[in-house]
């Protein structure tokens, strides 16, 4: 058995792996942000009074829950340019293709999470908002969205962790993220253990950092006076340090 630590550390601290990690995390963040926003409107669409809007929204969710992510990526990267000549041009990079494909998919999944989070809010909340004379969008913004977020944080955190890992699928459409970078080194040297471990280490660190952020967000949404005071003290402390 041979594991060459120097190869592992060299890869770990190399520019190409860091670049791969940055590609993976920015892609995951962009996809997740887009999917949360689009998924929110899709969730509203699924509850719409308009039959056509409701039907189209349900069809979208059905389609993108059913088709595997890998297949969607290949379809977008290889099949779409055959159908739409404009996608043969240089701007259509693997990064954009991966963003499109993963966002299409993630939007469907986020819509389902957001729909159930909205459904979990007691009906009396909207009633109270209406009684205070809040207009529909005002009630959504001030009353429903904050309560929806609290319910949606844990499953959305799960989705995001999955998304960080799912960016590795884009290696098949030659996006130079972590897995692609490691696979290139492997194909050159056949040192599977060292290079793939380096990539795995990055995923471990990225996901761990995110888990810390998630638990902070969950505490922020605990809705009691002690947490709200503690958190505002923390952010005030930060401001004071910045000013100093």
């Amino acid at each position: 058995m041979s594991f060459d630590p120097s190869l592992y550390f060299e890869a770990l601290f190399s520019k190409s792996y860091l670049k791969g990690a940055v590609t993976a995390i920015t892609l995951a963040v962009l996809v997740q942000v887009a999917a949360v926003i689009l998924g929110f409107f899709l969730a509203l669409g699924r509850e719409s009074k308009n039959t056509l809007v409701r039907g189209l929204s349900a069809a979208y969710v059905w389609l993108f829950r059913a088709v595997p992510a890998l297949l969607i990526l290949i379809l977008i990267w290889n099949a779409l340019p055959q159908l739409l000549p404009v996608m043969k041009e240089a701007w259509f990079s693997p990064y954009i293709a991966a963003f499109l494909g993963l966002t299409l998919l993630e939007t469907a999944l986020m819509a389902e999470i957001i729909r159930s989070a909205l459904a979990s809010i007691p009906s009396g909340q909207l009633l109270a908002a209406r009684a205070l004379g809040l207009k529909p969008w005002s009630a959504i913004w001030h009353v429903q969205i904050p309560q929806m977020i609290r319910v949606a944080i844990p499953p959305t955190g799960n989705q995001f962790i999955n998304m960080v890992k799912m960016t590795s699928l884009a290696s098949v459409i030659s996006l130079q993220e972590l897995l692609y970078t490691a696979a290139q080194d492997v194909s050159r040297t056949f040192s599977y253990a060292e290079y793939y471990s380096a990539a795995a280490t990055y995923y471990l660190v990225l996901v761990s950092l995110f888990m810390v952020a998630q638990s902070w967000a969950e505490r922020k949404y605990s809705w009691d006076s002690s947490t709200s005071k503690r958190l505002s003290r923390v952010s005030r402390g930060r401001k004071e340090t910045q000013n100093a």
Binding site: L127, A129, Q147
Partner: peptide, 20 residues
């Protein structure tokens, strides 16, 4: 309706305070 409702105060059986 929103502006009409502002002149009428309403209190519910289950309070319906905004928990957040």
């Amino acid at each position: 309706l929103a502006s009409h409702r502002a002149a009428i105060g309403m209190v519910f059986q289950s309070f319906n305070l905004f928990p957040h």
